[in-house]
Nucleic acid binder design. Structure first.
Length: 475
RNA sequence: UCCUCCUUAGCUCAGUUGGUUAGAGCACAUGACUGUUAAUCAUGGGGUCCCCCGUUCAAGUCGGGGAGGGGGAGCCA
């Protein structure tokens, strides 16, 4: 029976028999194996006898998988509390060191590791990142489950492109050559698998709203697809999104929920992945040292996470945000590239200023002008703004986008017409407003962006196992 | 998609004004050592200087085009 390395390292005693299995991280002095099984960041040191068979000795190379029967004893060397004194050792899978592309001692760059994403899990950094990613995913389900939310699976393949959240990937079984055409030359989707044009989902929100009209509180947590040609460290073509939707909530309840939610999952990761986060914090600190003084962040990773947990997010309206920006030293010194005026969307540089320079904490911006937001957002009484909210996080930018939804049928239909959204095709969505409509609100949170924030990583391609980006779908 | 920077050994990088046989550290191989902790020491093998075209007596180095990657921007989560 295999004992996990995490269990051995967590125990306080010694002098017991174990079997450990894992992958060799280093082999020193023909005697000391650093063995890792992914259960935790740390390795167990396996000490093998000087009489070990030559053939086995040759096969203990970096990356090889082995099984060891032995005894956990108090370490005779410094650097670890316990070690496994091997009685017998079996090579499970050899690893030719000349061909193995992962050389840990060379501190390979993140860019290089991205090219060997199938092997990068075996590094400390990516081991830590993906254990934290797992913990955050679990914490998300736990948060909502503990509050009585129903986890709702919204469709991956959808016919609706009404939200206009972005370019969509087409789903089809039609042949590229000899595509069936209508008389006017357009593609005849009646011949397609679903008998209509279909795409990969860009959001589960509209369907989640349908669920909220029955269960009161629901959430989705699934893959989402955007065919935007976005080449940034913050965008993926395939990413995971969390979208809670709550009946009877207004925009203020929505803000409270989002804030509680973010605090909870950060706290859960701090509590359950401290070792991994400490490692990532140290990694980040070393990276910061390379930067010039004025670009370094004031807080370390752990301090940043604790700060977010312990401080209320700043809440301002879009109009107040514009006033702050117009009144800022940066504006007066003409530091902003883009124009600041009421009615224009906030640019990255503006968001960064508000979050990183002015407030130095996460900021929730509400009441955006209706013309820069989606059709389903609830019109405020001023007739100019909608009940939208964006949460802006330091270093990441927009991490949450949400709103109170327009529950009044006439107002919703009016907005859809103004924005040229076909109301007939959306009958199922409008039915919620026809049959027992209630005020409700929800938001979307990009999972990889919160993983970025918690791990302190800076490129989104490093926090999803196999990133899908323009011109890149390896593995 | 736009701006900008980069691409030299398996990895990380140096390479002077365009000039002889392109270097280092690590990795790897062989040997030594055997309580190591990024082990150490000695020896050794390893190159399509991203690709194509051009300038030149001569190109890793200069020019043009292309590909891939990084950072920033737009779109957004």
């Amino acid at each position: 029976m295999r004992t996990k390395i995490k269990e051995i390292l967590n125990r306080e005693d010694a002098d017991y028999k174990v079997n450990v299995k894992g992958w060799v991280r280093s082999f020193r002095n023909n005697q000391f194996i650093a063995l890792n099984d992914g259960s935790c960041l740390g390795n167990i040191q396996v000490v093998i006898g000087l009489d070990t068979d030559e053939k086995i000795l040759k096969s203990i190379t970096n990356g090889a998988s082995i099984s060891v029967d032995g005894t956990v004893i108090a370490s005779q060397g410094k650097g670890q509390r316990v070690e496994v004194k091997a009685d017998s050792i079996t090579i499970l899978g050899e690893c030719d060191p000349e061909k193995f592309p992962l050389q840990l001692k060379n501190r390979p760059s993140l860019e290089y590791l991205r090219e060997i994403a199938h092997l990068r899990f075996r590094t400390n950094t990516f081991g830590a990142i993906f254990r934290v990613r797992h913990t955050l995913a679990y914490a998300i389900h736990k948060f909502f489950n503990d509050r009585g939310f129903v986890y709702m699976h919204t469709p991956i393949v959808t016919a609706s492109d009404a939200e206009g959240a972005g370019e969509m990937f087409r789903v089809t079984t039609l042949p590229f050559d000899k595509t069936p055409r209508n008389e006017d030359g357009t593609v005849n989707f009646k011949e397609d698998f679903f008998g209509r044009s279909t795409n990969l989902t860009v959001s589960g929100q509209l369907e989640a709203e349908l669920g909220a009209m029955a269960f009161s509180e629901v959430y989705t947590f699934g893959p989402t697809f955007r065919a935007e040609n976005s080449n940034t460290a913050r965008h993926l073509a395939e990413f995971w999104m969390i979208e809670p939707e709550v009946a009877f909530n207004d925009i203020f309840d929505n803000m409270d929920l989002a804030e509680d939610f973010i605090r909870y999952i950060i706290g859960y990761a701090l509590e359950h992945n401290k070792e991994d986060l400490d490692f990532l914090a140290q990694r980040l600190a070393e990276e910061e040292k390379q930067k010039p003084m004025n670009e370094r962040s004031e807080l370390g990773l752990i301090e940043k996470l604790e700060f977010v947990m312990n401080n209320k997010f700043e809440r301002i309206t879009y109009t107040q945000a514009i006033d702050i920006l117009l009144d800022s030293p940066a504006y007066k010194k003409k530091k902003f590239q883009y124009e600041i005026k009421w009615g224009a969307d906030l640019q990255s540089e503006h968001e960064r200023y508000l979050v990183e320079k002015h407030f130095k904490k996460p900021v929730i911006v509400t009441a955006y002008p209706k013309d820069i937001k989606s059709f389903y957002m609830r019109m405020n009484d001023d007739g100019k703004t909608v009940a939208a909210m964006d949460i802006l996080a330091p270093g990441i930018g927009e991490i949450v986008g949400g709103s109170q939804r327009e529950e009044r049928l006439d107002k919703l239909e009016q907005r859809m017409q103004e924005m040229h959204i076909p109301t007939e095709e959306m009958y199922w969505y409008l039915d919620t407003r026809r049959f027992g409509t209630v005020p409700h609100a929800g938001f979307g949170l990009g999972f990889e962006r919160i993983v970025l924030f918690v791990t302190g990583m800076t490129n989104i391609r490093d926090v999803i196992p196999f990133p899908r980006t323009p011109k890149n779908a390896e593995f």
